[in-house]
């Protein structure tokens, strides 16, 4: 149990760090990276769950399937976000998202 707890807490900490990054950083690339890492934190948790739920030494395959699908989603989402960030840079010349009317 304690071993899984370490992984679980690591995932939670990573998630929290990334949340902090998304809210406080203004550089778009950093925000996108933080979101990407946030996904990794969830994947870490899912793999921990797979290991915890193992039956007869075989890990639970459902979280693995979720991680695989999640990676595909994360890749396409990140690619899209990066393309959008490039267009933003091309049009405004900025790399940072400045607050005009609130957060993000």
């Amino acid at each position: 149990m304690s071993e899984f707890l370490i992984y679980g807490l690591a995932a939670a900490a990573l998630f929290a760090i990334c949340l902090h990054g998304i809210i406080t950083r203004t550089h778009i690339l950093r925000k996108i990276l933080a979101l990407n890492m946030m996904g990794s934190a969830v994947f870490l948790l899912l793999i921990t769950i797979a290991e915890r739920n193992q039956v007869d030494g075989v890990a639970d395959p459902v979280p693995h399937a979720m991680v695989l699908t999640g990676i595909v989603v994360a890749v396409s989402a990140t690619a899209f976000a990066l393309a959008l960030a490039r267009r933003y840079h091309a049009q405004t010349g900025h790399t940072e998202l400045h607050d005009e009317d609130g957060s993000t």
Binding site: I22, I28, K31, I32, L35, F80, A81, L84, A85, R87, Y88, Q91, T92, L97, T104
Partner: peptide, 11 residues
């Protein structure tokens, strides 16, 4: 629209 879209995407 691009600025708004980027904010929306991140949120």
């Amino acid at each position: 629209a691009i600025v708004a879209g980027l904010r929306y995407l991140l949120a």
